[in-house]
């Protein structure tokens, strides 16, 4: 096994919410409840799960957009969570992010050349007239013409804007990009263009990705390994082909069975029991998934299953597997 670029260990993030009237009660939301995974150089790791599972929080905490409440994040040997302001600035050149909604992640008042040139200037990579050609090269790399330089974000379509967002993430020459649902706001035909682009960048730049998505099909196409999250915990992880062929955790199986395929012969299985996904505000005891799980027993209701190695490279957190 090759070396590790990013190592996340036992990451915790707790939000406090106050709800109730007239006397508000403080409730704790365990958005991340001991999450661990590794990313290797040049590898795309998928993080999948449904809303509220904490998959976006992973990226935000690992990038220090929010402070963690426990655990550690190590990037290329450096402690990210304990980094000082100047250390963090240096780390951020190597760790970047692509957002879901490119319309919201670009400053509408900046021309493209300024939006992409700003990080280059701020980090002292180039100055003055040297910036423009660098930006033009970035645009070319993401498949946009030079004429885009002097235009504003609103003049582009959603797919083009996402290309700009990707180019901006590349501006500092990162080794790792967190991509938070980068294609889910796009139409299918454009989504495929962006996925192809990301795949090319991954190979040519030897770029590693933490690819956050709710769409199993997209993850299967783009990622080599995948981490499945449910209510703040990792329930299963492993290589993409194996997990997609033979999911171990009942939740992973449910996800797979629920994802509609464009084939009327394989109609979506609707055999799982009904019921709402529990809220992360007040997660069930024991295994978080047990209220929806077809094979849950008494142990699942009281004892939290630990993430265990099942096979080389595969881990699963279920009392009934392995």
């Amino acid at each position: 096994m090759s070396e590790t670029l990013l190592s996340v260990r036992d990451l915790r993030k707790i939000y406090k919410t106050r709800r109730g009237w007239p006397i508000p009660r403080t409730a704790l939301v365990r958005a991340l409840d001991g999450v661990s995974f590794d990313v290797r150089p040049g590898e795309a790791l998928g993080v999948v799960g449904e809303s509220g599972c904490g998959k976006s929080t992973v990226a935000r905490v690992a990038l220090r957009l929010q402070e963690a409440d426990g655990g550690s994040v190590t990037f290329a040997g450096a402690d990210v969570l304990g980094a000082s302001k100047s250390e963090l600035r240096a780390l951020r050149r190597r760790m970047q992010m692509v957002f879901q909604d490119p319309a919201s992640s670009l400053d509408g008042r900046q021309r493209i050349v300024d939006a992409l040139g700003e990080p280059i200037r701020v980090h002292g990579i180039a100055h003055g007239a040297a910036v423009r050609p660098l930006v033009a090269r970035l645009l070319d790399e993401v498949g946009l013409p030079k004429s885009a330089l002097d235009r504003y974000p609103h003049e582009f379509s959603g797919g083009q804007r996402q290309r700009i967002g990707i180019a901006r993430a590349l501006a500092l020459g990162p080794d790792l990009v967190f991509a938070d649902e980068p294609v889910s706001a796009l139409d299918v035909s454009v989504q495929a263009q962006i996925l192809k682009l990301l795949e090319t960048l991954r190979r040519e730049r030897h770029l590693a990705f933490v690819f956050i998505s709710h769409d199993l099909g997209v993850v299967r196409y783009f990622c080599q390994r995948v981490v499945v999250m449910y209510l703040g915990r990792v329930v299963e992880s492993g290589p993409v082909p194996e997990i997609f062929v033979d999911p171990l955790h009942p939740y992973t199986r449910l996800l797979k069975a629920s994802s509609p395929e464009p084939d009327p012969v394989k109609a979506v299985a609707m055999t799982f029991q009904e019921g709402e996904p529990p809220s992360p505000v007040d997660p069930p005891k024991g295994c978080h998934f047990h209220p929806r799980c077809p094979i849950a027993d008494a142990r699942c209701r009281t004892e939290r299953p630990e993430l265990r190695d099942f096979a080389p490279g595969r881990t699963v957190a279920c009392h009934h597997v392995g």
Binding site: H214, L255, S258, S259, M270
Partner: peptide, 11 residues
């Protein structure tokens, strides 16, 4: 909706 909920609503 999330896919598992989507499946329920479609059913």
């Amino acid at each position: 909706l999330d896919v598992t909920i989507q499946a329920q609503v479609l059913a």
